[in-house]
């Protein structure tokens, strides 16, 4: 780019010694540098890593059994010896339940977005690149699903399929496909009209090569950033489905379900009853802030 402009304006400008110019860092390297300078993003990434550690490595941070209750130890307050975060309505250790419960909450939050990203992203890139009849067809079908508020659609699908983790993941995947198709279609349509994509097509590159090297390289970033912003919504919604009794079934530990079963106990142990929800909140907030951090680090226009 700079070489070409200098060649054109060559005779009138003083010759610049190429050796003295600082090398321009690559795009991803500069994104990384901007991320390292952002304390909020670093902090929330650490929080997410910690949550991942205590949930996946639950047996390492707690020795209690998440299913083992005790009639004598029901609904103990925070700070009870042996039960640092208290116990739930059947006397199970809440810290243990929170650690194990995060596994399903995170899984049920991340998996739908992953599935929807794979299906919705492909459909969107296809619709945007192909355009014409195929594009119109895909987008009109998505418009129909867009006509349902997302929570309503998820609850309706889950309610019809019956409760269970698989059904709630399936329902949420269907819910997140239309927005991902829309976003990928928009960015692909924009990328397709860029001059170098036109040039690649004109010079006889195969459709597959054009999509792989020129289109995907330009649309993947924005689509991924959008998908990460959906994770927070997905975690809230999947826990919400369990909260309604449509997701995971008892006695499986899961934050939404725990919040629901402890709801009756708010008159006895208010702080203990609020803890599972606090975990959902911290996790979704962290994912939201991380997504914001990546978005601004990847947006070249904001970081001149």
């Amino acid at each position: 780019m700079s070489d070409a402009t200098m060649d054109i304006a060559g005779p009138t400008l003083p010759k610049i010694d190429q050796q003295k110019l600082a090398p321009s860092p690559g795009y991803w390297k500069s994104v990384g540098q901007r991320l390292l300078r952002d304390p909020v993003t670093i902090a929330v990434t650490c929080i997410i890593l910690t949550i991942l550690f205590i949930t996946i490595g639950a047996p390492l941070v707690t020795s209690a059994d998440p299913f083992q209750g005790s009639v004598l130890m029901r609904l103990k307050p925070i700070g009870t010896p042996g039960h640092g975060l208290g116990t739930d309505e059947t006397g199970r250790d809440l810290w243990t339940r929170l650690c194990y419960g995060g596994r399903l909450s995170l899984l049920a939050g991340v998996l739908p977005v992953t599935f929807a990203l794979a299906i919705g992203g492909s459909l969107g890139v296809l619709a945007g690149y192909a355009g014409g009849l195929v594009g119109t067809l895909i987008m009109r079908v998505m418009d129909v699903f867009y006509a349902f508020p997302s929570i309503l659609l998820a609850i309706a699908i889950c309610g019809m399929l019956g409760n269970g983790l698989t059904n709630s993941i399936l329902a949420l995947s269907i819910v997140f496909i239309p927005p991902l198709v829309r976003v990928s279609e928009t960015v692909t349509t924009q990328a397709r009209q860029l001059d170098f994509v036109e040039a690649a097509r004109a010079s006889g590159t195969t459709t597959f090569q054009v999509i792989r090297h020129h289109v995907l390289a330009n649309v993947l970033g924005p689509i991924l950033v959008y998908a990460t912003s959906l994770i927070s919504v997905s975690i809230i919604l999947s826990a919400g489905l369990s909260f309604l009794g449509l997701g995971v079934t008892p006695p499986t530990p899961e934050w939404g379900l725990m919040l629901n079963s402890l709801r009756q106990a708010i008159y006895v142990q208010p702080y203990v009853a609020a803890l599972p929800g606090l975990m959902i909140f911290i996790t979704s907030m962290s994912f939201n802030l991380m997504s914001d951090g990546f978005r601004s680090a990847m947006d070249v226009r904001l970081n001149k």
Binding site: F243, P270, P276
Partner: peptide
């Protein structure tokens, strides 16, 4: 604003009930 977007509103409902109706 970020807090508003990240809040699980069913939990928020429980917390508000706790603060203004129970305690």
């Amino acid at each position: 604003a970020t807090t508003g977007v990240s809040l699980p509103h069913y939990w928020c409902a429980i917390v508000l009930v706790l603060a203004f109706a129970v305690m």
